[in-house]
Nucleic acid binder design. Sequence first.
DNA 1: GCAAATTTTGACCGATTGGACAAACGTTAG
DNA 2: CTAACGTTTGTCCAATCGGTCAAAATTTGC
Lengths: 212, 212
Amino acid sequence: MPMEAVKPKRRTRIQTEKREIILEAALEVFAQHGFRGATIDQIAEAAGMSKPNLLYYFRSKEDIHVTLMQRLLETWLAPLRELDDIGDPITELRSYIRRKLEMARDYPRESRLFANEILQGAPRVMPMLEGELKELVDEKAQIIRGWMRDGRIVRTDPWHLIFAIWATTQHYADFDVQVRAVLGPDRGAEGRFEDAARFLEQLFIEGLKPKR
Amino acid sequence: MPMEAVKPKRRTRIQTEKREIILEAALEVFAQHGFRGATIDQIAEAAGMSKPNLLYYFRSKEDIHVTLMQRLLETWLAPLRELDDIGDPITELRSYIRRKLEMARDYPRESRLFANEILQGAPRVMPMLEGELKELVDEKAQIIRGWMRDGRIVRTDPWHLIFAIWATTQHYADFDVQVRAVLGPDRGAEGRFEDAARFLEQLFIEGLKPKR
DNA sequence: GCAAATTTTGACCGATTGGACAAACGTTAG
DNA sequence: CTAACGTTTGTCCAATCGGTCAAAATTTGC
């Protein structure tokens, strides 16, 4: 009995298109209300179709969420994957921080969707965190540790450094309404992110440069 | 017509006790599932009483949440309130960061409850963010800015500095399952927070000390 | 001890939820 | 044209939701 691909998943043109529309709508709704707070009706309306029609393309609400999270993790980890051993450590880290901040600015819904999932205890992505994510972080932490051993950046905990970069950048997406409420309407979104970029650059990069 | 207190709120001993039990249970449930994801039945069961009995002490689910958020904000902002103009800037900021990290360690449910509320767009606490919170942050940012003007710490954006301290410390409560998944079971909770404290001290404090 | 006040409960309600299903509607290959 | 296939819809359902209510059980003030 030959081992075939688990799912052939032959898809019509319409199926491909409609699934895409649904996922886009679901991202909007899930990011705003969380998994349990979101309803299939809301997603269906946002996608411009009836509920039974939506359930023709996805078997269940959970199915939509799982598909969404799988895709999300790929694009979400892309910046960290690009962190490279070759090249100047400071430049590499500066680029990573900048890319992460740009993602918080350009894909806030994705950030909030992810934050929601983790906040609820990651019931649907725990295996991915312990597998794929942990491996990637460990690998990159070793690279950073190497830089520290060579005295190219100051010595500190690479894992917590990565956590701090995640926390500070994603904060501008996840806690956006709080940031806006505190800063007031003086500066628009562009200004806020410019200021944030400057601040994070100073905080992390200046702090990491080897003394003398 | 004399202006009296808006609500006399004469409370029985039992009322005081039971309301406390309910709030404790609600904190647990709301922190894990968010407002919409939590059900009155869940809270009632966690509080060890029947649903109608719970609704005898709180008029509605919303009523519980509002009460919880009001109390939360007070204790949540306490560390920032303590940030004082007198005394050494470095010492003050070090204490603030340590206190915030301790709160993330000792009151993770409170942190997650707050994160949930902000993530959903702060529908029930927006006025408090734009009022009380903004005023407090602005006041403390001015103090920090004063320190910078006097050359006692390096010049940077005080508001974003506060955001960064919030983000990094609360990360250990809100994203706890992710942190644990990535770090693995090697070190217990104590070890994680020790490492985090050391890292954050280095990141913020070393970075803020005036050069030469 | 006892009446009044407070607390607790079981039964119930309308609204909303995720999802099922068959019938109807399109579309296209022969 | 028509049979086969893919798509869409209206209707329906059981479960769960937040919340009500009257009656029963308990506590409290005197």
